[in-house]
């Protein structure tokens, strides 16, 4: 680490209406205090939204190449090993970078996307005392070799870190009853979508554009900071907001009332 405060730069990529940005920033400053130099990077200055049309197109093409189009068969791979993206996919990503499109639902290879974004950052900021974090509604996943499946993620730590608001909704497991009901509806051909079943669960789970996403985003940003400064991924102390919540029930329980850090990580935050 350098001698000055950690520079955290937040980049916004259509995080959605659930995230109250001023509240998120205030909460981070409150938890970490003077050890954090926090800035929300305006899109016109963000390395992830190049103003130059050629640079934007190049980034859009690289991002489009990280799509996981067949989760059942696609495997993580490096650039150039997948099909070349269609022009329409590149244009969609370019519109997203320019703010003219915002749809979520595509699964991106998280580690590959992270590499693409890292390549867009200025080399002078690829240092331990700089952390860039993309707050996005893109759905990111990582491939788990142990079960040979893609898993959606809420956060991907590293440079840059990625926090996904769609991941907050889709990554943690839902109550068993949801999967039973969804299976029954699929088998019966009733036309009832999982999306509607999820909506019926109300506040028991984090929904799209849920105001609780602000507090969840604070926790996930703290996780990214913890990893960046200590290489420690998560906390295992019950009740600490740095616990890795695998289920919606755990995620909701962590963030009802006043989410807090355990004493050890409270000390870590204060010492930054």
């Amino acid at each position: 680490m350098g001698t000055g405060p950690l520079r955290l730069r937040l980049h916004l990529d259509h995080p959605g209406a659930g995230v109250d940005l001023p509240r998120l920033c205030a909460e981070l400053q409150q938890v970490i205090g003077r050890g954090l130099d926090l800035e929300v990077v305006p899109s016109e200055r963000s390395a992830f939204c190049p103003a130059d049309p050629a640079a934007r197109r190049a980034l859009a093409q690289a991002i489009a190449a990280t799509k996981v189009t067949h989760p059942a068969t696609d495997r993580p791979s490096g650039q150039g090993t997948r099909r070349r993206p269609f022009e329409g996919e590149i244009q969609f990503e370019a519109r997203r970078l320019g703010g003219d499109a915002s749809a979520a639902g595509i699964l991106y290879d998280g580690f590959w996307l992270q590499q693409v974004l890292a390549a867009a950052l200025p080399s002078t900021q690829m240092r331990r005392d700089w952390l860039h974090l993309l707050l996005t509604n893109r759905l990111i996943g990582t491939f788990d070799d142990s079960d040979r499946r893609w898993h959606a993620r809420m956060v991907l730590c590293g440079q840059p870190s990625i926090v996904s608001t769609t991941g907050m909704v889709l990554a943690p497991a839902l109550p068993r009853d949801f999967y039973t009901q969804r299976h029954l509806h699929e088998q019966s051909g009733s036309g009832v979508l999982g999306e509607h079943l999820r909506a019926q669960m109300g506040e028991a789970v984090v929904q799209h554009d849920d105001p609780r996403q602000t507090q969840v985003a604070v926790s996930l940003t703290l996780q990214a900071l913890l990893y960046w400064t200590t290489l420690e991924a998560f906390c295992t102390t019950a009740g600490c907001r740095l616990v890795d919540a695998h289920t919606q029930a755990a995620l909701v329980a962590l963030h009802e009332d006043e989410p807090a850090l355990c004493p050890r990580h409270g000390h870590w935050a204060g010492a930054l």
Partner: peptide
């Protein structure tokens, strides 16, 4: 002339937005 990935069924939420936002010239 092209390589079609085919449609997926895994992440079904909010796909309507994606369909509209991808509509346009494909070739």
């Amino acid at each position: 002339l092209v390589d079609l990935p085919g449609h997926e069924s895994m992440w079904v939420e909010r796909s309507e937005d994606l369909i509209v936002e991808h509509t346009g010239v494909a070739y």
